[in-house]
Design a protein around this nucleic acid. Structure first.
Lengths: 194, 194
DNA sequence: AACTTAATTCATCACTCGTTGAATGACGGA
DNA sequence: TCCGTCATTCAACGAGTGATGAATTAAGTT
């Protein structure tokens, strides 16, 4: 007994809505990215969004899901000799963030998370998952505290460079960042904690 | 020819509006903190806000002005011996941020800046002014690059601890933060840049 | 072809928003 | 006392919001 009638999913409209939603959430934040604006830019009727995602909140939840697999980062960093892992971690993360798709997703989380409880929790969870997992596998003791310290440094780099776009931070080339900040991260990984 | 008629400014209503505006901007962000909501919490008619500040935008601009004098921070840090200045800078900044009024102002800038161009520029300027000035007076060379690196670390600490409220970061006591992060800042101040 | 299901559109509701302009009230100087 | 100035309120407009439910169109299955 196969299902009868028209099969769903053959059209890519749903994906187009999600893409432009991420785009506008990242650009304007949650409230300013109205469903009508998203619908218009996706060349779609506003009601179609409700049809697919139930509500604007549902669209947001769906839009924030993105595979930012921590294990990829982990495997690359783990290959480096222990003394170079701090530098390597910075290098890999910066290279990841420089990709437009990832960057847009990050800005989307930040702009919506600013005024939206759910989005903030997603951001917290995402950051935790991607850093905590990677760091915990590299250190000998105190994984929570060490990964927390790494997070403060890496989150601050992302925040000032990609969100605030502070000129003096943007001026660094990715490789310069790795060499300048890497040793600090290395400290958090290996040095005894006060 | 003295001015005639009733003198302005005798009532503190204007200040009450500003205070609750900062409160709601910090709590909800720009769009969700409606003028009606602000007016209600200040026990005031919505039109009075327009009367005083011209527009919601004007209210925001006024609300974001706050004396966060960098020179105070600078003077305290400069007194410490050069080798302890990184730790001291972290200590002073964390102590400052822990004050409710400062914290509210910081969250206000962040939540509004997420979706509001002007607020983001204010935040960028504020961060630049308070860190760049302090750092430039402490280092021998490359003040822009060194202060940029310090900013990435300190902004990230503020972001993860006060905005995201990541449990592992919140778990640190202020003094622990100073000892754990201080040496990293010290590196940015004194170590040769890659 | 008839039928079933999904994709898409249309018109509309019930709100909330920021802003406006006229009205009222309070206070101080002449 | 009269008048000018500011503080404060009131009612309302126009635009934009998210959401709903019924209608239409398209694509599969039998």
């Amino acid at each position: 007994m196969k299902p009868r009638g028209r099969r769903p999913g053959v059209e890519d409209t749903r994906e187009r809505i999600l893409t432009t939603a991420r785009h506008l959430f990242a650009e304007r934040g949650y409230e300013r990215a109205s469903m009508r604006a998203i619908a218009a830019e996706a060349h779609v009727d506003p009601a179609l969004i409700t049809h697919y995602f139930g509500s604007k909140q549902g669209l947001l939840t769906e839009a924030l899901k993105l595979p930012l697999d921590p294990s990829v980062i982990l495997s690359v960093v783990a290959q480096a000799p222990p003394a170079d892992r701090g530098e390597q971690l910075v290098r890999v993360l910066v290279d990841t963030w420089e990709q437009p798709m990832v960057l847009r997703h990050f800005l989307g989380m930040l702009r919506t998370g600013a005024s939206h409880e759910v989005a903030r929790e997603v951001m917290q969870q995402t950051l935790h998952d991607s850093v905590q997992a990677a760091v915990a596998a590299l250190v000998d003791d105190d994984p929570d505290r060490r990964s927390a310290l790494v997070m403060t440094q890496m989150a601050g780099l992302a925040f000032t460079r990609y969100f605030l776009q502070m000129p003096d931070v943007v001026a660094f080339a990715p490789e310069e960042l790795a060499r300048a900040i890497g040793p600090s991260v290395q400290r958090y990984l290996t040095e005894p904690l006060g």
